[in-house]
Every structure is written in structure tokens, then in C-alpha cells.
């Protein structure tokens, strides 16, 4: 099993609903977020191109955060989802510095927190909160090992990219372009 997410940069309007849904679902403390929306504009006026991306932890297959964690608090869970065990985390911040996507932060309670692909929902057969709530339905979630899953189907049909694959992390967040 290999959970992954595909996000359609052509359909995303940058409404930030995914961010609010995540904060509500996961009780993310005020002033923090596990996902965020990036708007990047390239080019010279008037030839400008804008890309909108809803970003979060990439749940990398070769995660630097799992490798550098001195206690094993950061680990791979079901389907390759990268998780942090609260009461094993010492809050040393090594994983935060090791993440090229800056996806992690220190929770006010002291442990390191990040996106979990809503594993608690996925276990019940539901979609992650951000995916479920997206008003343009630009996010797809599922098992890459299942060729008929939503995410496998869309990756077969569409062109996509991952973020800084040259960092060697094998990210599992795919952006449809």
C-alpha cells in the first residue's frame, strides 16, 4: 500500500478551504497550520503565469525527517504515511531542519507536528479533510498500489510533477500540471 495525493494546479483557485478544514479537523492550534497554499507567478509582464499549489507534508518515501530523528518518534506508518509519535518526540527540531519542504513545526505543547494525511479518517475509509472539503474537487487521494484508485487513475491521464525531486526524498504529493 502506498498512499499519495494528487493536486490539480489548474483547478485550484487558492481559496484556502483545505487549510481551514485541516485546522478544524486536526485541532491545529491557532497561529499554526499543517497545510498552506502557495501562489507563484513566473515571467515578465505581460507574459505572466501563475501556479496555485496546496502544499503539505510530502510523506516522502525516503524521508530525511525519519532518518534524522534520534528517538524514532518520526516513523513510517500504514501506506508510507510519515507520522510523529507524540510521547517519543523530544522536540529537538532536527526533523524541522531536515525537511526541504518546511512541512513541520513545533506544537505549543512541545512535540513536532505535521500533516498526517488524516490517517484517522483514512482508516475509516474516509478522505483526508482537505480533500473532502475542496470546493473545486482539485485534490485526489488514494493508494498508488491500486491501479483503480482515484489517484492512480488521474496520474495515468495527466502530466504531473513533484516538488524538488532532486533532493532525493521521493515525495508522494503529485501536482497535476
Amino acid at each position: 500500500m502506498r498512499y499519495a495525493m494528487a493536486i490539480d494546479t489548474k483547478k485550484c483557485v487558492g481559496c484556502s478551504d483545505c487549510v481551514v478544514a485541516c485546522q478544524t479537523e486536526n485541532d491545529v492550534p491557532i497561529g499554526y497550520c499543517r497545510d498552506w497554499v502557495v501562489e507563484i507567478t513566473n515571467g515578465t509582464y505581460p507574459q505572466l503565469e501563475t501556479e496555485l499549489r496546496s502544499e503539505r507534508c510530502n510523506h516522502c518515501e525516503n524521508s530525511p525527517c525519519v532518518r534524522c530523528c534520534p528517538t524514532g518518534a518520526s516513523h513510517y506508518s500504514e501506506g508510507g504515511i510519515v507520522m510523529v509519535t507524540k510521547n517519543e518526540c523530544i522536540g529537538c527540531s532536527a526533523c524541522i531542519t531536515s525537511c526541504p519542504y518546511d512541512a513541520r513545526f513545533v506544537h505549543p505543547e512541545g512535540y513536532v507536528d505535521k500533516c498526517t494525511f488524516c490517517l484517522h479518517r483514512v482508516k475509516k475509509g474516509m478522505k483526508p479533510a482537505c480533500v473532502a472539503v475542496c470546493p473545486t474537487k482539485c485534490m485526489y487521494f488514494g493508494d498508488l498500489d491500486d491501479p483503480r484508485s482515484e489517484v492512480s487513475e488521474v496520474l495515468k491521464k495527466r502530466k504531473y510533477k513533484t516538488l524538488i525531486p532532486e533532493a532525493g526524498t521521493k515525495p508522494q504529493l503529485y501536482f497535476l500540471i
Binding site: 497550520c33 497545510d35 497554499v37 507567478t41 515571467g43
Partner: peptide
């Protein structure tokens, strides 16, 4: 030119 804005903050 390349400009990056984090919309949601």
C-alpha cells in the same frame, strides 16, 4: 521575474 506568495499564510 519570479514571485512567490503564500496565499493562506
Amino acid at each position: 521575474m519570479r514571485e512567490e506568495i503564500i496565499v493562506s499564510g
